[in-house]
Design a protein around this nucleic acid. Structure first.
Lengths: 109, 109
DNA sequence: TTAACACTTCAAGAGATATTGAGATATGAA
DNA sequence: TTCATATCTCAATATCTCTTGAAGTGTTAA
């Protein structure tokens, strides 16, 4: 994961509506949720939800799959894992105090 | 760490110059670096460096301490740890695939 | 006190991003 | 085919953020 990808992902997450969307989709698990359900959950119009879902998908935080007339969005654990891994390893230079805070015991990814 | 604090921290990190500053200060460790040194490292004017350092300090990513005419900035591992912890626990709902990616074995903070 | 240095704050302009509503596209049912 | 539903795209506006340079604050030394 290079710096540009990390910046895109951090930027995508640093917005209230989008952070809410990610938290919701993480709770939804493999089932995922349609754009309409996502919009309803976070109190957004469909075009606003669509805009934010695009940003999140573009950043690699979520994925989408069309099923008949619905498009189901799902959280992408691998993407979030890569971000966390970058923060711990590259950004924080494997600082033990940072790793200790989250129960990280071995070096990673 | 509440949602507003997380958003502030993610926003602070989602900018190239500021991400560079954090990485540099993490490498500097307890010694830290002055605003001038930071600016030189990331290729920023003094006012630009000061602007970004303020944003990072305000977000809790770094700390500052005046020593005579210099102000020394240091990375704040506890702040970064809290952010990573939030991402793993709250945001990702303790999703095992996310935790696995970084060698996280126990639940945390 | 005066001067030099290190850093911060302020204001202004440029650029990026968020929100909204209207219209377009895609799918499935009648 | 026609209609209804689900979602996306587009343009306009508003808001936020970054950068720059000038002016201000605080510290040390002469």
């Amino acid at each position: 994961m290079n710096e540009a990808e990390v910046l895109t992902m951090l930027g995508a997450l640093s917005q209230q509506t989008r952070l809410q969307i990610v938290r919701f989709l993480m709770r939804c698990g493999d089932t995922g949720a349609s754009a309409g359900e996502v919009g309803q959950e976070v109190g957004a119009t469909s075009s606003r939800a669509s805009f934010h879902l695009s940003a999140l998908e573009n950043a690699g935080v979520i994925t989408s799959e069309r099923q008949s007339r619905h498009i189901y969005y799902r959280a992408n654990p691998a993407g979030m894992g890569a971000l966390v891994s970058f923060l711990l390893n590259d950004c924080c230079d494997n600082h033990p105090d940072v790793r200790a805070c989250c129960g990280v015991v071995s070096s990673c990814c």
